[in-house]
Computed example of a mutant assay.
Amino acid sequence: MSGVEAVLLFSPNSSHYRRFAEADPDEDLLVVAPNNTVDAETYVELPLEFDNVRDRIRFGIEGALERGLVEDEDIVACSVRIFDGDPDGVVRVRVTESMRSGIYDLFANSRAEPGVIRDVFEVAIELGKKGQKGKPVGALFVVGDAGKVMNKSRPLSYNPFEKSHVHVGDPIVNVMLKEFSRLDGAFVVSDSGKIASAYRYLEPAAEGVDIPKGLGARHMAGAAITRDTNATAIVLSESDGLVRAFKRGGLVLEIDPEEY
């Protein structure tokens, strides 16, 4: 395809991939999909299937940027599925460094399942939009590596999820999470989405944790626990209403629920 540095094929079937590969053997083809079912030489994992085509393209390009497969100012062609069936549209996009949002790393390289992180984000964003009975509320969710997180924290109160096997993403459970968010402590969620606990006091020391100025104890605790474990912390700020994600002791993503 003339005038582009690479072609990104989003979830192609074998015949679609072969058609592009045979049309120009020298073309840089990148397959972006949940699995590399076409045995492409260059592959970017798409851990979530985005319904929104724009989000799908941005996510795929960010993954290609993270892997060094495309560069700033490259022009790429994205073959995507807009309607049902095979990919049926091609979109030209100029790659920019501003596309490095942190979202790809968060979903593709976290210990917890991507769908679990998405479900927790949706709970936090919904809380950020509506609050608790119309009032702003803060919340802290620690996702993944739950056993180690539990060992580095202590209960503040009775754990309502101690003998349950409920998972984030269930509409009824999400209502429970929103209700419990008005009380102190963190929620601990396993890799698979099982809610291990509520009301946990996180004990890792804050030394060596670098978070933006103005963020409080909830953010510091979330950042610190991700420094000492393989968890991801998702924090809703009561003061500014933003949702932030922390990994490896640092801030990796910031979202305004009103713009989501």
Rank of each mutant, 00 (worst) to 15 (best):
V123P: 01
D39N: 13
R56V: 03
A77K: 13
L127Q: 14
A77I: 04
I234K: 02
L65P: 04
A6K: 08
P155I: 11
E62T: 06
K133Q: 08
D145G: 11
V209F: 08
S164G: 09
L46V: 03
T226E: 05
E238G: 11
A221W: 00
Y201V: 00
Q132D: 11
G138N: 02
L251E: 11
L202I: 14
H167M: 10
Y158K: 09
D170H: 14
F50S: 03
N36Y: 04
N36A: 06
K129D: 07
V173Q: 05
E41V: 07
N174F: 08
I75F: 04
F246V: 06
S98Y: 01
Y260T: 08
V243S: 11
S14Y: 08
L251M: 13
D105I: 00
G68F: 09
P212D: 08
V168M: 12
I172R: 13
V4N: 03
I57D: 00
A146H: 14
P155G: 10
I82S: 14
E49H: 05
V168E: 13
E45K: 13
P204F: 05
A186R: 03
S197M: 07
L29W: 11
E62S: 02
M150P: 01
L9T: 12
V173G: 10
K163T: 10
F50A: 08
A112F: 04
L242M: 14
T229W: 11
H167T: 11
G128E: 12
G89Q: 11
S157T: 02
P136H: 10
G216L: 04
P34D: 01
L236D: 09
A146F: 07
I117P: 04
V235Q: 06
N174H: 05
R18T: 12
I195F: 06
L127V: 02
Y104S: 03
T229P: 03
P136D: 11
S157V: 07
I75R: 11
R67Q: 15
T232V: 15
Y199V: 02
D145L: 09
A186Q: 08
G102N: 10
V173R: 05
L140C: 10
E254Q: 10
T96Q: 10
L46Q: 12
V44D: 13
L9A: 12
D26P: 01
A245F: 00
V95P: 07
G169R: 13
L69A: 15
H219A: 15
Y158T: 09
D86P: 05
E73I: 02
K247V: 09
E203L: 15
F83D: 13
A217S: 11
I82L: 10
D240N: 15
G249N: 03
F107C: 02
V90S: 04
F246A: 01
Y201I: 05
E113S: 07
D55W: 01
L236G: 06
P160M: 10
P257K: 02
G128S: 07
G131P: 02
